[in-house]
Design a protein around this nucleic acid. Structure first.
Length: 270
DNA sequence: CCAGCCCCCTGTCGGC
DNA sequence: TGCCGACAGGGGGCTG
């Protein structure tokens, strides 16, 4: 569910409320939510640690602790919710982990239980294999071109590979390919220099548009305050199969590529 | 390297 | 109405 724009929105929401907060206690309602270390160690080690700040790398939320780091990956249906009011309120459905802070609580809620929390001394073991950060200046058209060159896989599959570019998921991959006028099924290595530049620009602008609207909500995504994102109405292909293309009027198609659904305009994308 | 399959889970929706 | 299969924004692993 949450891709880079959704994770970025949550991180920005959390920065101010969490910076400087101290973890007082941990409630683990679903042990499978803890990837590393064991659930018992996780619960034993966190109390007393202070949250220094909140960052993002790809789709990972990074709570910088003193000492160590707590990484959160929301996968499909995970949410990280602030419950800052002092009054006791009922736990939300599918609450998996609750961090008691010196100011309120931070709740990890996850219907499908795919999301994971990682507590470690440093983040490198889990973030080291991630590819370029697409909104970073180091992500240039040349850098993207180098990743695509010689690859026979379809360009969409490459965009979804977190080792190549970190943070793109199914929605923004489809939207960026539409914005660039490139078919998701094109073999990555066949893109011209101009197409690589158009794709690079489209990836950035589509992600930034998503952030501007505080993310895309279909059903599950919520920000740290439990609110929906506003970007859905701005999507041009994702979720619009059968509807006319906003540019040319042709019917938006949907097909399966690499096990994921893909949405595209057969006339605008080549 | 790559396509295609499986798995992890739960909820929702469409067809019959 | 009720049941059943398909499908969902992610990612890891396996096979051929």
């Amino acid at each position: 569910m949450p891709e880079l724009p959704e994770v970025e929105t949550i991180v920005r929401d959390l920065q101010r409320p969490l910076a400087g907060a101290t973890i007082r206690g941990v409630d683990i309602l679903s042990e499978s939510a803890i990837a590393v270390p064991t659930a018992a160690e996780f619960a034993a080690k966190l109390p007393g640690r202070r949250i220094q700040g909140v960052d993002r790398r790809g789709k990972f939320i990074i709570l910088r602790l003193e000492p160590g780091v707590l990484l959160v990956h929301l996968r499909m249906t995970g949410r990280l919710l602030l419950a800052t009011n002092g009054a006791e309120e009922a736990d939300p459905p599918h609450l998996r982990v609750a961090l008691q802070l010196d100011r309120g609580r931070l709740l990890f809620v996850d219907t499908r239980k795919f999301g994971r929390l990682y507590l470690a001394a440093d983040a490198n073991a889990f973030l080291g294999s991630l590819g370029a950060e697409p909104l970073d200046p180091a992500f240039t058209p040349t850098a993207l071109g180098d990743c695509l060159q010689g690859r026979r896989a379809c360009v969409k599959s490459i965009l979804l590979d977190q080792r190549v570019v970190a943070g793109i998921g199914n929605i923004y991959a489809d939207e960026a390919l539409f914005a660039a006028g490139i078919s998701p099924a094109r073999a990555a290595g066949t893109l011209s220099e101009a197409e690589v530049e158009a794709l690079h620009s489209a990836i950035r602008s589509e992600l930034q548009r998503g952030i501007h609207h505080r993310g895309t909500t279909f059903s599950d995504y919520r920000d740290a305050h439990g609110r929906r994102g506003g970007h859905r109405e701005f999507l041009r292909v994702y979720g619009r199969a059968g509807q006319p293309c906003s540019q040319c009027g042709a019917e938006i198609q949907r097909s399966r590529l690499g096990g994921r659904s893909s949405h595209y305009c057969p006339r605008c994308q080549r």
